[in-house]
Computed example of a mutant assay.
Amino acid sequence: MVQAFNPPELWSPFGAFSMAVIQGDGHIVHLKGQISLDRSGQVVGHNDMRAQTRQVLENIRDVLAAMGGQMIDVISLVHYATDIDAFMGTGDIRKEFFTAPFPVTTTVQVERLYRPELMIEIAAIAEIPRERFRHPASDTP
């Protein structure tokens, strides 16, 4: 059984998705692909890959924190970038959020995301240790 979770600290989902899905007894957490929206749903960093990457990673950090997780718990990332060269220039930003051992990653270039001003979407899977995990109250049926 899985449980959907949408932390109130982030923008509200507007479609058929959740910010995170908790699998099993709460150790494995699958995060929805995050984009560079702030809490009010406004795009951060129009056409700025560096600003968007930072906001996306902050969103991932905040979803995890709402369940007791940390960035060190991330085990896998999938990056969807509209400009692979611009994304490759964000390594220093990613290193602000991740330390060794780094999560496994897949990076693909896509023609566009659901809004043309968005340049990056990152999906993550994390394993939060049982002693830190806080099971959120479900806000989704």
Rank of each mutant, 00 (worst) to 15 (best):
G15Y: 06
L64K: 05
P129I: 00
T140E: 02
I120V: 13
H46Q: 11
S12M: 08
P13C: 01
A126N: 11
D38R: 13
V78P: 05
A20T: 03
H30K: 13
A20Q: 03
D48E: 12
Q34K: 03
I125D: 08
F14H: 05
D48I: 12
G89S: 08
R54G: 08
M119C: 00
R112H: 09
P116C: 00
M19R: 11
P101F: 02
M119S: 05
T90F: 06
M49S: 00
E58L: 15
V56F: 08
T107G: 02
Y80S: 04
T82Q: 05
V56G: 06
F5Y: 15
A4Y: 13
D73K: 15
G15L: 00
A123C: 12
V44W: 02
T90L: 04
P13M: 00
A124P: 12
T53E: 07
T106Q: 10
S12Q: 14
I72V: 10
D92V: 10
I122W: 11
Q52F: 04
T106I: 04
T53C: 12
I22D: 06
G41Y: 08
D62P: 01
H79I: 13
N47M: 14
A66S: 15
L31W: 06
A4H: 15
Q52R: 06
Y80Q: 12
L31Y: 03
K95Y: 02
M49D: 01
V2F: 13
I60A: 04
R39V: 07
R39T: 07
T105M: 14
T140F: 11
V2E: 01
G45I: 08
K95H: 12
L118R: 05
